[in-house]
Simulated scan of single mutants.
Amino acid sequence: MDHLTRRQQEIYDYLQANLDKFPHPPTLDELCNALGLSSKGSLHKQIQALIDAGLIEPMNNRRRGIRLSGQSQDEAQGLPFLGYIAAGHPIEAVEQQETIEVPDYLHTNRPCYVLQVKGDSMIEEGILDGDQIIIEQRDHARNGEIVVALVDGSDATLKRIEQKPDRVILHPANASLSPMTYAPDQVQIQGILVGQMRRYH
């Protein structure tokens, strides 16, 4: 690759060595941060030169992120499917060794997983029975976020959370159902809702 400048070669070598360490094809901003560069404009010129050289795939609105040419980096990434989550009465999330392809834009850079919804307690949020939801794994949430909450160490449920010093309230999104109130030590946050997929038959 004699036609590359030293900087372009460095960027290409970095991408070859590290691209699979990103949770999704990196944006210019993310690559700029990873390389410790201050100028996104300068990086964009180098990336464009690599695109012109046929080493990086062209970027467009459908295929976001930086991908090396010839690599099988699709728009979808396999995330672990961990079973079923109740959007009604709590049920246990069953862990299964399976992955589901999820488009990049439906998950975050942090570890994520997929659950399938059972029940109708979140229908007023547009979350229906049978939907697959993408959860960002974390143990904390802001009030008002929709979370996977583990109740009494065994039952996982999907609800909008309200946290107070002396209690945690899990709110359904169904006018026919009432909020559930627990002591703070009864509820463990396992993640927050960041994406949703639905299949129409």
Rank of each mutant, 00 (worst) to 15 (best):
R67V: 02
A49E: 13
C112G: 00
T157S: 03
L193Y: 09
A86N: 07
N60S: 10
M1I: 10
G70C: 03
A183D: 02
Q16C: 12
V168A: 01
P111N: 09
A86H: 00
V148N: 03
G119R: 12
G65M: 02
D152H: 11
H24D: 08
L68P: 04
S178M: 10
R62N: 14
Q116T: 05
Q71Y: 09
A87H: 03
A175S: 13
Y84P: 00
S42Y: 13
N18T: 07
R160P: 04
V194S: 09
S154E: 15
M122L: 11
H44A: 11
D120H: 15
R63Q: 09
R199E: 14
I91R: 08
P165W: 10
I189Y: 02
I91E: 06
L43H: 02
M197W: 08
A141T: 02
G83R: 02
S38Q: 15
A149S: 04
I51G: 00
G119L: 11
L43V: 11
L158E: 05
V114W: 04
D2Q: 13
Q48D: 05
Q9C: 07
D29P: 01
D20Q: 14
T181G: 02
P165H: 09
A53T: 05
A53C: 08
L28G: 02
H140T: 13
L150A: 05
H3M: 11
E75I: 14
R63C: 09
V114K: 03
G88A: 15
K118A: 15
G88N: 14
E101P: 04
D120A: 15
I133A: 04
D152P: 00
P25C: 04
I47R: 05
E75W: 11
I192V: 15
T157M: 10
